[in-house]
């Protein structure tokens, strides 16, 4: 199935793309998507312990299931205000 990956701020700069579409196995989780992404782009690994994740613009967890067409976002630590 296909998912859209969204990346923001420095994660986007490291990846060189704000949005990627990737094929992932059925029954994938956010973790599956992240694992595929970091093996493709090892420089992203530095965010593994500090990032947040969202599925379809709702905060989520690494263990959450993803479905065909979902938007999975990886978010560096925030700095609004």
């Amino acid at each position: 199935m296909r998912v859209t990956i969204r990346l923001f701020a420095r994660l986007r700069d490291l990846a060189g793309a704000a949005e990627l579409v990737r094929e992932v196995p059925d029954h994938a989780t956010v973790q599956t998507v992240w694992n595929a992404l970091k093996s493709e782009m090892p420089s992203l690994v530095e965010y593994e312990r500090t990032m947040s994740v969202a599925v379809n613009a709702e905060y989520s967890r690494m263990g959450a299931a993803v479905h065909e067409g979902d938007e999975v976002a990886f978010l560096p630590p925030v700095s609004g205000g």
């Binding site: 701020a9 905060y59 630590p77």
Partner: peptide, 10 residues
């Protein structure tokens, strides 16, 4: 890029 808190509303 400035980075502060890891966002976790829960």
């Amino acid at each position: 890029w400035l980075e502060g808190a890891t966002a976790d509303p829960d």
